[in-house]
Design a protein around this nucleic acid. Structure first.
Lengths: 147, 147
DNA sequence: GTAGGTGCAAATCGTTTGCAGTACA
DNA sequence: TGTACTGCAAACGATTTGCACCTAC
């Protein structure tokens, strides 16, 4: 079990939710996958070693983990509603428009910008989402080998 | 006809696409609405003064306008697949998590950040999406009047 | 005149809901 | 033991597709 997996399981228990084999399976796959996955893709992956699981359970678990802030929703590149491990506060992703790979590059300090926006617009800003799209190293080579 | 509307119509014609009454109706509603709208909401609005239009046509027109860079897709706050007028390069939105209002605040210069990311990750960055979520002025008052 | 555009209906996909049975704490 | 969780099946909404007809250029 890696640390991401452990963190999710602890978070779940701490907030009074039960740890079922199905939830364990969902967590395991998310924690082990660097890419973002849609609910359906995740379901397919989980079924490989947990064939009895229902798609509904995957949906419900994702919804729960998202609500508890234990996983992070990714939006980019046409495929909305994808999920990846990690805290939702760390909303800085690089997404390859070719292969769909997601690279998490940590977060950037938007405090100053948020304050300026609050002054200008009257909004009370709660969070942000920053995603860059482009070609990853691998796809750059594949598309244009001489570079 | 406002300038946004004119820009879309010109863009469409310049790239060799026909200007039909249906497309005109879609463009008119998008250009006149500050909010973001889902394809379905847009369809309902358009039907008010263009009752014969089919939902399929709205979908196809949105897809076309998006492809030509004449409208901009908004992601935030659960409602993916919403559209609003404006260039997709100007991806800086403020979205109210309560009423769903979208405020366009112009763009921010990410050139430096993009270059740093390219160096660090090997990505060839093509674009970005930055969305802030929070409470708009109106909803702040409604939620917490004494502020 | 013709290629591109439209509208209908049906198919499809992702997601949610009701409900009865099951299992974790 | 009791409540939260699960899985099935069916419902649902959004989006796409096939096809015949239509119309802007």
């Amino acid at each position: 079990m890696n640390s991401i997996e452990r963190r999710m399981i602890t978070g779940l228990k701490q907030q009074g939710y039960k740890l079922t084999p199905q939830r364990r399976a969902v967590i395991k796959v998310i924690a082990a996958t660097a890419d973002h996955l849609t609910a359906t893709a995740l379901y397919e992956k989980i079924r490989q070693d947990h064939s009895g699981i229902g798609q509904v359970t995957v949906y419900r678990t994702l919804e729960l983990l998202g609500r508890l802030g234990l996983i992070c929703e990714v939006h980019a590149g046409g495929s909305c509603h994808s999920f990846t491990a990690g805290s939702p506060e760390k909303h800085l992703h690089l997404i390859c428009s070719d292969c769909g790979e997601v690279t998490d590059v940590g977060d950037y300090d938007f405090t100053e910008m948020e304050q300026a926006l609050q002054r200008e617009t009257g909004y009370e800003i709660e969070g942000h989402l920053l995603e860059f799209t482009g070609l990853c190293q691998h796809c750059r080579k594949a598309t244009n080998p001489q570079r």
